[in-house]
């Protein structure tokens, strides 16, 4: 691809800890991507609106509050409602192992838990984009 990959990095829900999201944002920047950082306490509707207007290739969300089972699938469904199913949706944060299969089934393509190497995330994005 001869254009920068555009990624929305977002913190859905009521969760004030964005160190992880900022580390990811920085790593993706250093991998040559355009990272649109939307900040804390975003509703799924706001995240989807940003992804649509920014014509993002990827939505990467981080949650540490425990609300992932509710918020991640909601973003996936809102994107589908918009007819935007060519966007790669990723989740990260403190997510129990047991919840991961359900989230993937709901349409979150991959979940990255604490300890994931940033290079793994960069490679995953580059290899799994849903459009040219």
């Amino acid at each position: 691809m001869d254009r920068p990959i555009r990624v929305i990095v977002a913190k859905p829900g009521l969760d004030g800890h964005d160190r992880g999201a900022k580390v990811i944002a920085r790593a993706l920047r250093d991998a040559g991507m355009e990272v649109i950082y939307t900040g804390l306490r975003q509703t799924p509707e706001q995240i989807v609106a940003a992804a649509i207007q920014e014509d993002a290739d990827v939505i990467a969300m981080s949650i540490l509050s425990g609300a992932h089972n509710h918020l991640f699938p909601k973003v996936v469904n809102l994107m589908k409602d918009q007819g935007a199913d060519d966007v790669l949706i990723l989740g990260g944060g403190v997510i129990p192992e047991d919840d991961i299969p359900g989230l993937k089934e709901a349409g979150v393509e991959e979940i990255f838990t604490p300890g994931s190497a940033t290079q793994t995330i960069v490679d995953f994005i580059k290899n799994n984009l849903k459009r040219d």
């Binding site: 920068p4 944002a25 920085r26 993706l28 920047r29 250093d30 991998a31 040559g32 991507m33 355009e34 990272v35 649109i36 950082y37 939307t38 900040g39 975003q42 509707e45 706001q46 609106a49 940003a50 207007q53 920014e54």
Partner: peptide
């Protein structure tokens, strides 16, 4: 970034209330 071609586009953070307004379109550019 002049070195990697990447960027962090952070202006939306200050305009989040406008994201959902049907009469507003916000676009970040590097």
């Amino acid at each position: 970034s002049p070195f990697t071609g990447g960027s962090i586009l952070g202006d939306r953070i200050r305009m989040n209330d406008l994201s959902l307004d049907p009469g507003v379109f916000i676009r970040s550019m590097g």
